[in-house]
């Protein structure tokens, strides 16, 4: 757990102006996630954990403060550079899976590679490998609506893995699944972590959060000890 820093935040603030009020979604966050960690970010709704996730995922920029990803300061990055960072460094896993409904499982997993401008043949090879890794080698040609919830989430995880990102960012990944399937997904995350992958799990579920090696608690835009 003493690897290089994957995500580093220094006094990150994110303010939203809503009418006449300033909402301080993040109000001075300083933290550090290192390579190989399995971290949960926990907090009640409205605590700022979604904003925190958007910051880590490079979907949003801070009002002030510095965010470094793999040591690179992304704070001043353009929209296009942030897209490249999302593509290369981050693997997203969503509560609602967010698979592209018209595409097969394989095509879904290939999509990040498409934006990485990888050749079609290589794309296919890497995507098949990722699908086999999550145990879905048999159902590559199926569309999302032909898959169970657990299978969908496995496709989504394969899609998150496929670009070999610096960290996997999972937002309530078991939230839409029954307990048993949810546990299987958690097991998969643990295996991936054991293989050396850095995993950040955002959840309001205390039990799930405590299952991770480290917890980052957030409340009212600040870290709790």
């Amino acid at each position: 757990m003493s690897g290089n820093s994957v995500i580093e935040m220094v006094d990150v603030r994110r303010y939203f102006i809503v009418g006449d009020f300033v909402v301080k979604a993040l109000d001075g966050i300083t933290m550090d996630i290192r390579q190989g960690e399995f971290v949960s970010i926990m907090g009640p709704s409205g605590s700022g954990k979604s904003t925190m996730m958007n910051m880590i995922g490079c979907l949003d920029r801070p009002t002030s403060g510095i965010i470094r990803i793999d040591g690179t300061n992304t704070t001043e990055f353009s929209e296009r550079d942030l897209a490249y960072v999302r593509n290369e460094k981050i693997g997203f896993v969503f509560q609602q899976f967010n698979l592209l409904g018209k595409l097969s499982a394989l095509d879904n997993v290939m999509t990040p590679l498409l934006y990485a401008r990888i050749s079609p043949r290589e794309r296919k090879e890497i995507a098949i490998e990722a699908l086999e890794r999550v145990g879905l080698g048999e159902r590559m040609k199926h569309r999302p609506n032909e898959l169970s919830g657990g299978q969908k989430q496995r496709v989504a995880i394969a899609r998150a893995l496929v670009n070999n990102p610096s960290l996997i960012l999972a937002d309530e990944p078991t939230g839409a699944l029954d307990t048993k399937t949810g546990n299987q997904i958690m097991e998969l995350f643990e295996q991936l972590n054991a293989e050396g992958r850095t995993i950040v799990l955002v959840t309001h579920n205390r039990e799930l959060g405590m299952a991770c090696r480290r917890q980052i608690l957030i409340r009212d835009g600040r870290l709790e000890d």
């Binding site: 296009r80 897209a83 934006y115």
Partner: peptide
């Protein structure tokens, strides 16, 4: 939503 997902996966505005 599809557009959001694609952007999260690394699609640029130009893509």
């Amino acid at each position: 939503r599809e557009i959001g997902v694609r952007k999260a996966l690394g699609a640029t505005n130009r893509d």
